[in-house]
Design a protein around this nucleic acid. Structure first.
Lengths: 135, 135
DNA sequence: CATAATGATACTGTTATGGTATCTTTACAA
DNA sequence: TTGTAAAGATACCATAACAGTATCATTATG
């Protein structure tokens, strides 16, 4: 299992780069050269971030991407949701079988608690907080 | 993502059933009838539990399975490890890229902490504890 | 108006998951 | 001593998610 998949990971790295670059626009070309990611895959990721209002894109010559949301407000949990859907620790297991056994329920409750904990942590972790080098 | 897959889930339910049944031996036939699981899949699961020393199997007529470990000592974390391998919240992401960016490291630390928390919870949750109905 | 950028979309390879099918081995009981 | 009912071993299959590629359309800018 993987909490963070490649596309989410690329999104995080790209966003961190854009924040640090302090330029008015950053192109895919620059990101690919600096971060060494597969170009077409990164393009898809950036397009998605544009659609979701995290980035703003500019087409045409000298086009590129700009942050559309402050880095303190871009949460890792949100990025995971965009690229991987809502975090669920038990998708199939208890989906349609509504508590067939009492022990399932105990298990369900425990796992739900772990899920909630993880989600809350991911939602309190922002791009800005990743960039704070001090400590 | 899924913290618990079907085979682990079946293992948990089967083990709970065996504990509750209080019989000296429980056959696949009985388990399939009671728990409504696909027979060949459950068989694979039980064989694996036998190999790992959680169950003990008896072949031949009137054969079946018996618990080989006390239910207080069978932990959900262990079962997950048997059927899904070690829990890892970040398999690909940081595997061979050893900290290419400082923000990755911050992220890695945070996610490692979530992983440790989840693992420790799963390792303190036993089959016996699932069966305690009183709260 | 050529070009350099993004937008949209369809396709492909690999792996994990959830299963099925089949044949072998073992032990009990008539 | 042999048929049968159990588990053991193993090979196979279908689907979906993940990771990535390829291609064409659109849009600014110089």
């Amino acid at each position: 299992m993987n909490l963070i998949t490649k596309n989410t990971d690329y999104a995080i790295r790209a966003l961190c780069y854009i924040v640090k670059s302090n330029k008015d626009k950053v192109s895919v070309k620059e990101l690919v050269e600096s971060l060494k990611m597969p170009r077409p895959f990164l393009r898809k990721v950036l397009q998605e971030l544009n659609k979701k209002g995290i980035l703003r894109s500019y087409k045409g010559k000298n086009g590129g991407f700009v942050l559309a949301t402050r880095p303190e407000k871009i949460y890792i949990g949100k990025l995971i949701e965009i690229f991987q859907g809502p975090i669920k620790f038990q998708e199939h297991t208890f989906k349609k079988e509504i508590c067939p056994e009492i022990e399932s329920c105990v298990l369900k409750k425990k796992i739900d608690a772990m899920e909630k904990y993880t989600i809350s942590r991911l939602n309190s972790l922002s791009i800005a907080s990743l960039l704070k080098t001090g400590k």
